[in-house]
Write a protein that binds this DNA or RNA. Structure first.
Lengths: 116, 116, 116, 116
DNA sequence: GTGGTCTAGACCACC
DNA sequence: GTGGTCTAGACCACA
């Protein structure tokens, strides 16, 4: 896995976990890889994976069964989508639209790209 | 001014300077506020403002007259627009469209807002 | 059964066993559930129940008849009461009272509830 | 500083920070010691202090000014008291009262200790 | 100077 | 086997 430089690895890993849940690759109650296992797979230190999992736990995407492992929270998918929709619509979109206005970019420009 | 976390303050300040130039609030050859003055206004260490100005100078948005101050470069507006258009269309937009797809947000619905 | 985080499950189980003995639900020489049976009931690995029982055996609350099962020790009730009274009064209560003081909770108000 | 064995050091440190705020030793907007400084003082690794501070930040007891340090949140005191009162009254107290009942401990026993 | 991230490696309790 | 905590030490960006 390649990591973008200016975003912490542990957050990038958390993002990919969310993506796998959103895409249906990992489903409710599935066990996610152990910190050691995923660390080996991605070539990063288990501590870093641990940090991802702690973060994902605080936002209720995974939960822990002690001594057993981490599991996908049944409400994870909804939680992720709602959270991201809210952030996107309320915070990111206004900035994007404002930027488009300043840069004189029209919707047509966008749709022409989209259809490539 | 509130500073969005995870993006360096000096870059956020540089962004607002660019915005003021793009929007026409600050024009070619206008003097921009002194490092100290803007620092006071924003409640930020002057060193941080200095860093913004140095950055803006490297991308030819402002220039310096020694002992006098910083001024808006005549070619700033065009430079910013071209640079940011390129980045926006090539790098940011694909990510945005992909995200909207994952979140089930229809681009047509959103960008038609612009026409209201 | 829900398990309070940060306290080992096997100790939480041991606590509930003690409670059942204190409350008179389980009496001297009664047979306690088998490791497998209680594991099923609580949705917990039998190894964990085993660990509870081993612990309860070391503090003389239950004893084992090989091939038969675990039984409530005749002296269990007294032993538990004396042990827990001591711990409660000497160790826990001072902390509790101190905390109530910090939180502005009046002990008289609270403990008079008991008399209702 | 002495650390209790079965509670993570970083939580114990967080507790002492809360105590200092509750007791008025540290007030709103005060700067708390840097992670390195407090690490030296307590003889623990700065990473461990960092972990305490991250935790305290998530529960809105301190906040961060980038490149400057951590500061006591103006609402910290109220937040801590409300949070701890709630936990105490709703979660801990019922257990305590139940335990007292099982152990035949009367309020009088408590007040006699309290007055020593 | 400050916090923040990451690695390597150790040790522990728990299941 | 699992997660969880802690240390030591490195390196980085930011103010």
């Amino acid at each position: 896995m390649e990591f973008n430089d200016h975003k912490p690895i542990y957050l990038q890993i958390a993002d990919t976990v969310c993506d796998k849940i959103l895409s249906g690759e990992w489903n409710a109650e599935d066990r996610v890889p152990s910190v050691r296992e995923l660390g080996m797979t991605l070539g990063v230190n288990p501590n870093t994976i641990m940090r991802s999992y702690e973060y994902l736990q605080t936002i209720n995407v995974i939960y822990n069964k002690r001594g057993v492992g981490y599991f996908v929270d049944p409400s994870a998918k909804d939680a992720i989508i709602n959270q991201e929709r809210r952030i996107f619509l309320e915070e990111e979109l206004p900035k994007i639209l404002n930027k488009m206005k300043l840069l004189n970019i029209n919707p047509e420009d966008i749709f022409s790209i989209k259809n490539n």
